[in-house]
Design a protein around this nucleic acid. Structure first.
Lengths: 340, 340
DNA sequence: ACAACTACTGTGCACGTTCACAGCGCGGTT
DNA sequence: AACCGCGCTGTGAACGTGCACAGTAGTTGT
């Protein structure tokens, strides 16, 4: 009597309550709910009905405790936080991964590791077993977090090639190099002859590979005065464009390694009195939402973000299942708009 | 013997291992780690040292199971996903909340509830007890999720006044109405006499309150032809601006209820051959990163996002502690740039 | 007819932690 | 001298679930 009273007092129904309501045992309820193997149709129906009437939902903590799985995943961003809301790429990746995983009922924990303090915290947090795997968005190489994670043995998937760890950690990345080639070839086909470039930081895969693609096409034409480095920020794009104009006022095209930097470059070109695309053609990279919001709209190289997030999730789940880390390189596509 | 063997096989140290290493009992270790009350200095030192040598981190699932707390919080977005990466506001809120909570070692689960399916999933997920509270970013009123959450009894804090539930759910919001007044008064002080407005959707607090502030200042001057509704998207801002120009070609200022829409409006004004601010002054709202990236840069009303996120977190933690829901209205500030 | 197999079901244990309780020695008050 | 309170400690629950195992009934094969 008092036992039943205390049970009724607890508001959240447990698997016991469902079992009692369905007239079966805990084990049968558990089996019915996880796969439903070796369960009679009658029992299955009874359990399902009992679940409905009691409003039962499994306690995730109890489940995690016994399965030794957190059933969740972390999305870790090592870039300065500024970039999360300045550059839509990160939001798209975050959104894509979240959505992809939500369909599998896997929640995503968002963590940043921009500062030393945050990195420590994130590292400790992940080591505590809060998550089964990590989606790591960290373009800059040499971040200690990657090695810490690798050493802790937790499954990791990087977004973009993790320079120096290509063989040891899984990653999904767009084919930056051939994407850059597509763009530069397109600029040449438009009759441009003095094609400059604004690169990403030299310690990022995008910074290296897209520049390599540019050089592939231009060969010796790619002189040093036509190459300026940016930091993937709008302000960085502006500064780099100003530098290029000072060094090579006769340039007639510029391939910018990200749409956000390209938007900055457009502003500077506008201020210098040059018309786009008549005087200078501008090509971006990403095909983020920025590309269609500039005037003129940007010709750019589309990164297949949806495929990238899908692959990241797949590669992570594979590793959680015990498979070794793998990599996935995805093709890019030229999107021609008004700026070239 | 075999017992010790199996213990050694488990890679993650438990509280038992720490207790053994420190020469004390589980209870003492637990007490030493949670507050350290009623623990002798000697025992405390021994435990701390044992934690260091074993590399112990508490198992969150086990802890949650017994404390009946998830020790985590959900950030739920009900807007169409598009907006997460088009409008920087959401990223800022997300980032702010995450950061604020990270300092308290509370992870943030990111969930979307844009579609019916997602809403069901999110609802069930939260009902399962995965989180202790919900940070709800949902501008549109009438979303069933809010009521579902309220009924389930889980602590909720809304961002922006939850129309129709002001008394029942906690919220943090900027003072939209007086912010709008600031801007319209500023436009008048610049000598503008035909001041139009592009509002947010009428079922959002921002849509209602900012329009009210506009009317407060203009009174009968606020004729219907000067008011157009937008949907907080860039495209919506463009469409609304085009409508206004058709209806009132003589307008000399427009107050736009969000920076993103204002950016769209600027484009349309530019295309129509009008100069900003000489022919038409444009005022935005938010002071998001967009405001400084337009040409000309936007005069806007700054929302104190950092204070908003701080208040959201505070209000949520309060409720988790058992306090009743409260509200927090935060002051806005006029930021004058080149567009007025 | 008996054994072997199949399909299904119930029970005990373990996961790792916190909390309530009881026990212990020790100094101070009645 | 007996008692009480205090600071500290160890121990036995309990949280709710999944899994291994044993057991039952019914069916098939020799």
């Amino acid at each position: 009597m008092s036992v039943e009273r205390s049970k009724a007092a607890r508001n959240r129904p447990t698997i016991h309550d469902v079992a009692a309501a369905a007239g079966v045992s805990r084990g049968t309820v558990s089996r019915a709910l996880n796969g439903g193997r070796n369960v009679s149709p009658a029992a299955l129906q009874a359990v399902l009905k009992a679940v409905r009437t009691t409003g039962y939902v499994a306690n995730p903590a109890a489940r995690s405790l016994v399965t030794q799985r957190a059933h969740s995943v972390a999305f870790v961003l090592t870039e300065p936080q500024q970039r999360l809301f300045e550059d839509p790429n990160f939001s798209i990746l975050l959104q894509g991964c979240t959505q992809e995983l939500a369909e599998l009922d896997v929640p995503v924990l968002l963590m940043t590791a921009s500062t030393e303090v945050e990195r420590k915290r994130t590292s400790r947090f992940i080591a505590a077993g809060h998550v089964d795997g990590v989606l790591l968005v960290s373009s800059h190489t040499g971040n200690p977090l990657l090695e810490e994670l690798r050493d802790s043995g937790i499954p990791v998937v990087a977004c973009g090639k993790p320079i120096g760890h290509e063989r040891q950690v899984a990653y999904a990345a767009a084919d930056d190099r051939s994407g850059a080639r597509l763009m530069v070839e397109h600029l040449r086909s438009r009759g441009r002859r003095r094609i400059a470039t604004i690169t990403g930081p030299p310690d990022t895969p995008g910074g290296v590979e897209r520049l390599a693609g540019y050089r592939d096409v231009l060969g010796p034409e790619a002189t040093q005065d036509l190459i300026a480095h940016g930091d993937y920020s709008r302000a960085g794009g502006e500064a780099a464009m100003a530098t290029l104009l000072a060094r090579a006022p006769d340039l007639d095209a510029v391939f910018v390694a990200s749409d956000l930097m390209a938007a900055g470059a457009l502003n500077v070109l506008h201020d210098s009195g040059r018309r786009v695309p008549q005087d200078v053609a501008v090509g971006g990279f990403d095909d983020s939402s920025i590309a269609t919001s500039t005037r003129p709209a940007l010709t750019t190289v589309r990164q297949p973000f949806q495929r990238i997030t899908r692959e990241m999730v797949r590669l992570l789940l594979e590793q959680i299942q015990g498979e070794p880390p793998a990599a996935s390189i995805l093709p890019t596509e030229l999107v021609v708009r008004a700026s070239t």
